[in-house]
Structures are given as structure tokens and as C-alpha cells.
Design a protein around this nucleic acid. Structure first.
Lengths: 339, 339
DNA sequence: TGACACGATGTGAACGTTCACACTAAGGTG
DNA sequence: CACCTTAGTGTGAACGTTCACATCGTGTCA
């Protein structure tokens, strides 16, 4: 046997076969629970497997079966627990169905994340989900066409051939948020946008702008942008409130930006929600422990993760790639102290 | 070509070779930037690759080279951003060095997580890190011995053959926490323990118990246990404060439990930090936005992630498995409003 | 001009596994 | 008793790639 770099050699199916005094195929049959193996033989093989500490090589297996029972999931920012939630949800779904989930963080510097997806493919996954999408529809279409496996996009609605997209109904969410703010007497609503990913962000922005324009007399909302993080949300809010002192409500692109907004209000000596109301998007668990607790649009991450997995599974099982399907998810407004 | 389940067939190196009118080896040489390829040939091959949308099959490659340039990372709870931080840190480190990181969530129900590790191995990773460890030293030793690749454990110090363990200096952390509480006039310190993973938890518990006993007259601290989550921390704190009304400081096993403690104090009408001080462990970013902001022991997740990656890399490059090395990480106390 | 180096390319084997098929022995059926 | 079935097992080929080696020109030097 050739040496591995690490110096230790793992036993192969042939090693097991030798020890159990059978052929590799018989070992393979034991591994896959084939019925036609004599009980005594099976026992001998199992013993050999146990003694040698044999583990089947999934890569070799995938090579010949052309199926790895593995899906890939690429998410943008593991530090934001919203993505962690979704990732965790997909893991559970995958496990339940005998699949394995390989998670990877989208590396924006590697061709805006496309490099990460490419590498995921080379790993031999049976399907790919990504969340969210930095890419233009055309790019995704091309990727899906050449990927050779089903592709699911989470976080943005888009009718793209061979791609299932799973996203929240942004119009409904915007109506919920803005409606609630107006109902509680707010009149001048500002928006904190995510400056990073125009493709992802656009839908939410348009929906919010529409809702604000429709429901307030003042019309077009003032906007400030920053990275979707706490500190950047804080800075953006300060700018927003300084430029527009009449703003009495701030909508954050996501919960972390909204958390930054809470801090900014505190910095500026403004009371929340009396002087300025704050709303976020996502519904991450840490929203419950802010001061005051954060009102937010809850995206059912587990549900969406589950849907993403099911879409991949269905595509694999039916042998047909998914087809421009859009799964729309209903948002819920979780009202807490910040409004 | 046989059909894949998904119905689309990916081009192979042979397809590329045919189109470029060369042999597979020449294509392989182009892929690996071998110097002895004629410029014209190289161009022809690159064109063919581009046109066909060819992507090398990492599994086939790994099979023959016995190296996948991939490390596996298994973490317990993606929803807790502490693990997300570490995971993100390892990803960056891996990418910097041309490695790919495959992340997976430890499934406690699958042989207490050992099943997850086993599956990770079958994926053909060149090394494995896990965080934290639910396993007994003997189990880990056995796993490392048969894994055939370097193993790194994050989150607990342990001298185990062929395993590098990376952990915070728990004694120092406990001294920092308890010292700080005593310095600010606290005398009766309660502890919120993690009831889930005795193996991980033990070290921190012992250290805290020692520090409290050493530094307060009252001696042995009252303890309440729960899962390391916000709600369970809240419940545990209520129990603790009800049973022991004299407690004037609560140390949470991690930040999420401590966040629960903040909520519990609020529920009980106790002022933080005047009536009860609260400290957490981990230093997750959301600790900045609690009310009041959470004092916490900061574990340098990025640094530890980096160290974990470097340990794996070194082991792979030196061809020798790591050897019971313990990398001790210095904790820092981040003092904020909750103490 | 022969010997030789070297650049450029191709070929067989191997990695660890499963698939398709072949084979043997035992048992049942007419 | 010849025939067929079936349980149990083994063998060659293939998956997509790289490694080690072989081959074939072309140019250089004595």
C-alpha cells in the first residue's frame, strides 16, 4: 500500500475481504444489507469490519454509483445566526432522509461566491442550495445548466429555469412592517439597507419603498446603507437620524442592522419606541434580549430549510431538475418592545 | 455514458481531451499547471474546458492522490453564533492555504456525535476538527488511532495521543471572572451549568468551583443546570435565585445562558448589576446589545480556529500525526454593564 | 554523423468501490 | 433422473483522475 501523507493507512474493502476470507463483493453486500448473504458469512464480515476499523470510502462509492447521498449548502455569513438557523434546519432535514449535508461559507472574494459553488460541485454533491444569492439570474441559470445537479436558491424569488427559489413574500412583509408602524402612529420611516448584495437586496428594498410610499404621506423614505452587521447598522442609523431628524421609525434590512439601530438611538439619547421605533428582519433568537426587545419579521428558517431540502430531494428522486419553481414563504410580524 | 439521477451528464477529462485533440494526461497537465505543455496546446485545452464547462472531479482525484485538500469541521450548534464564529474563522484560514473546509453539525443523536465524525471521515477529508467534544478521552483516542488522519479537538484540554487539543485556560478564566465579581463587591456567586455534555463542561465547572471557594468566604457555590440556551438559562436562573435569594452574582456557562439570566433578573424585578451581576462565557457579538450589555469571558474564536487549522495543516505536511499537544488559549475578561 | 539531452505528448495501471454477470451447489418439480 | 430455480458467492469492468513510465521528435555538441 502506498503511504498517505498522514502516515496511517486506512483498511479497504479488500482488506476486510481477506480477513473474512470472502470476496470484496460479499463485503460490499454486507455493507449494503443485501439479503442474500449467509448469516455466518455476514457475521464473519462484520467482525472483520469491526476489528479493522474499516470505514467505506464514500468517494470511491460515489464515483461508481454517481450518487453521493450528499447535498451541498453554501451560506454567506456563519456569524449571523440567521444563516446558522437555516443551516441547522437543513442538516436535520438531510439526516432524517439519510442524506449528508456539507456546509460551506460563501466566499465573496472568490468570484463573488461563484468559486465556492464551483468547488462544492467538484466535491460530488447530488444537489446544491445557496443562501442568499449574490448572483444575477443569468449567472445562476448558467450555473444550473452546467452543474449537472439540482439547484435551489434561498432568499430571493426568481423564475430561473432548472432552479427552485425559496423566498419570503417581500411585499407582504413590507406591508406588515410599514402597516404596523403606521398603526402605532409613526409617520416618517427610514430604511437601513444592505449595501453589499444588490441582487439579494433589491426585492426587499423595492417592496419597502412601495409600502412606505403607499402608506405614509411623506412618501419616498430616506435610506442609509451599510454592511448587514451590528456596528454598521449603528453607524448608518446615526447618519440617517442626523440627516433626517424627523424620522420616527427605522426599518433595518436585517436583525443585526436593527440591533445597531437600537444602539444608535441609545447613543443619541433617543427613546425606543417613543422617539424612534425600530424593526428588523429575520427573527433571530437574539432579538429577544435586546433593549427593548426587537420587533421583527420572522422568516421561518427551519421551514425554509426544510423546503430547500425537500426540493433537492424531489429533484433527485424524480430524475428531473426543478423547473423555475418559486416557493413563497409567508412572513410573520413578531411585535416586541421596540415598536 | 451512464445517466446520472439528475439527468445531466458532466463532461470528464476524457471529453475535454477529445475536443482538444490531446490525451487525458495533457489535460491533466494543463489543470495542474505543469510547465511542459506547448503554449498552443495549453490554449486549445483551456478553450475546450471553458466550452464544455468542465469541472475536475475532486473525488476521483482524491482517490488516486490520497489527498483531498479538504478538512472536516464538526460543530455542535450552528445556531449559537459562538460556533458560527469559529467555523467562519476556520473557513478563512483554510481558504488562505488552498484548502477547502467541509462543515457539519454534530448530531448528538447519532452515537453522541461520533456518527457524524465517522461520516466526515468517509468523505475523504485530510483532517478533522471538532468543537466541542462530547466524548471521553478513550473514545477520542480510539477514533484518532483508526481515523487515518490528524485530529484536532477544540474546547477542552486533554493530553490524548495523536490529538491536538485547543482550549482556553479555564483556571485563568475562572480567576478572572470570580476575581472581578469579588472586586466589585459580590459575595455570593451562583453558577449556571450546562447539563448536556459532562465531558466538555467538567473543566469549566471545576475551575469555577475552585475559584469561588478560594475567593469567597461562603465557599461552594450554588449551581443550577440547563441546556446552553437563552430560555433554559432563564429558567435555571429563576430556580437558582428562588432557592438562594442571597445570590448576588450569576456566572453563565456561556453567553446564551447568561442572556437568559438577564431576562430572569428582569422577570424577578432585580436590577443588574446592582442586585445581581451577570457574567457569560464566549464573547459572542450579540452580548453587546443586551440590557445591560453582557460582561463576558472572550474566547478568541478566530484565533482558536486559526490554530486548529494550522495544527491540521502542520500534521498533514509533516506526515506525522499530532501528538497529545495542548494549545492553551488565554481568556480575556470583557467588562460591560452587567457587572 | 552519431550520441545524447530535453521538450512535448501518450499509455497502462492504480485508487476503492459497485454493477452486471457468471458460477456453483443444493433443493424442488415433473 | 433430468431440469429448473434459487441462495450464496466470485470476477471483470467501470467510475474519473493521476502517477510512472514510455515514446517520439528536434536541437546541440564533440
Amino acid at each position: 500500500m502506498r503511504e498517505r501523507l498522514s502516515g496511517i493507512d486506512r483498511p479497504t474493502i479488500v482488506d476486510v475481504a481477506k480477513v473474512a476470507d470472502v470476496s470484496r463483493q460479499t463485503v460490499s453486500r454486507v455493507l449494503s444489507d443485501h439479503p442474500r448473504v449467509a448469516p455466518a458469512t455476514r457475521r464473519r464480515v462484520e467482525e472483520a469490519i469491526e476489528n479493522l476499523g474499516y470505514r467505506p470510502n464514500r468517494m470511491a462509492r460515489a464515483l461508481v454509483t454517481r450518487t453521493s447521498l450528499t447535498f451541498g449548502f453554501a451560506a454567506v455569513d456563519m456569524r449571523n445566526s440567521h444563516f446558522g438557523d437555516t443551516c441547522s434546519g437543513m442538516q436535520s432535514a438531510a439526516r432524517e432522509h439519510g442524506y449528508y449535508l456539507v456546509v460551506t461559507e460563501l466566499d465573496f472574494d472568490d468570484d463573488r461566491g461563484m468559486g465556492t459553488l464551483e468547488t462544492l460541485l467538484t466535491l460530488g454533491v447530488d444537489g446544491v442550495a445557496f443562501f442568499p444569492s449574490f448572483f444575477a439570474d443569468k449567472e445562476i441559470e448558467l450555473f444550473a445548466a452546467t452543474s449537472g445537479c439540482p439547484v435551489v436558491m434561498i432568499g430571493r424569488e426568481a423564475k430561473i429555469p432548472n432552479v427552485v427559489s425559496i423566498a419570503m413574500d417581500e411585499d407582504r412583509a413590507a406591508d406588515l412592517v410599514v402597516g404596523h408602524l403606521v398603526d402605532t402612529g409613526k409617520r416618517r420611516i427610514g430604511i437601513l439597507m444592505n449595501e453589499m448584495f444588490p441582487e439579494v437586496v433589491h426585492g426587499r428594498f423595492v417592496a419597502l419603498q412601495r409600502a412606505v410610499t403607499e402608506r405614509t404621506e411623506v412618501g419616498n423614505p430616506p435610506v442609509e446603507a451599510g454592511h448587514p452587521k451590528i456596528q454598521q447598522g449603528r453607524n448608518a442609523t446615526k447618519k440617517l437620524l442626523t440627516k433626517h431628524p424627523d424620522v420616527d421609525a427605522v426599518i433595518g434590512f436585517n436583525d443585526t442592522m436593527a440591533m445597531g439601530a437600537l444602539l444608535a438611538c441609545h447613543d443619541l439619547g433617543l427613546r425606543v419606541p417613543e422617539d424612534v421605533a425600530v424593526v428588523g428582519y429575520d427573527g433571530i433568537s437574539f432579538g429577544a434580549i435586546t433593549n427593548p426587545p426587537l420587533t421583527t419579521i420572522v422568516q421561518d428558517s427551519i421551514g425554509m430549510a426544510d423546503a430547500a431540502f425537500k426540493a433537492l430531494l424531489a429533484a433527485v428522486q424524480n430524475g428531473t431538475p426543478p423547473d423555475g419553481e418559486v416557493v413563497s414563504w409567508q412572513p410573520e410580524l413578531l411585535t416586541r418592545g421596540s415598536t
